[in-house]
Amino acid sequence: MVTLYGIKNCDSVRKAVKFLKSNNIDYELVDFRERPVECDTIDRWLRHVPIDTLLNRRGTTYRTLGLRELGPDDGEKKAWLCKENMLIKRPVAETDDGRVVVGFNESNYKELFL
């Protein structure tokens, strides 16, 4: 089983869902807007991926908050991710055995799930 974190209307999340469905992989989609991700979940992800992989620097939220100008350190980045889930790069796929992959890349998904 894969837990997919993101938002329903995100193109990358849609691609990940399409991949999982077409390969008959069971998944649950957790939409940030309906069920915000808590800090303990973010901590768990950060044991597997670097914070700069998890932080979406290309999104509107990052620009709107002016985080580039603030130059936050890793602790501040984590606090922002906990406070503002839209800063999380989407999707985050987590398997039952604890593997985590951030963003959608078909070759990474094939390697991880097939």
Rank of each mutant, 00 (worst) to 15 (best):
T3G: 02
L67D: 01
K89P: 05
R58L: 00
G98H: 10
F113N: 10
C82R: 06
N23W: 06
L81H: 06
K78N: 01
M1I: 05
V17E: 14
C82I: 04
K83S: 13
K89I: 12
L65R: 04
L81P: 00
N85E: 07
N108M: 13
Y5Q: 02
C39A: 15
T60Y: 07
D26L: 14
K83D: 13
G103L: 06
V102I: 11
F32A: 05
I7N: 01
L70D: 11
T64M: 11
R47A: 15
G59T: 01
W45F: 11
Y109P: 10
T60G: 00
D73C: 15
S12N: 13
D74R: 12
K18D: 14
V2P: 01
N85V: 03
R99K: 14
R63G: 02
R63H: 04
K89E: 11
V2F: 05
I42R: 06
R44S: 14
E84W: 08
P91Q: 06
V13N: 00
L4Q: 01
V101I: 13
L81R: 08
E28H: 06
W80E: 04
G6A: 02
W45Q: 03
K15D: 04
D40V: 12
E28R: 09
C39S: 14
V13Q: 04
L4Y: 03
G98M: 08
L20V: 10
R99T: 13
D31H: 09
I7V: 07
Y62M: 00
L20G: 09
K89A: 15
G103F: 07
L67N: 02
E84D: 10
W45D: 05
Y109G: 13
R35Q: 15
E76A: 15
H48Q: 14
D52I: 07
D97N: 14
I42K: 03
V49C: 02
N24G: 12
F113M: 09
E94I: 09
L112G: 12
K15N: 12
V17A: 07
T95V: 06
I7D: 00
N105Q: 13
C10F: 09
P91F: 07
P50K: 09
R33P: 06
L54C: 08
R33T: 06
E111S: 15
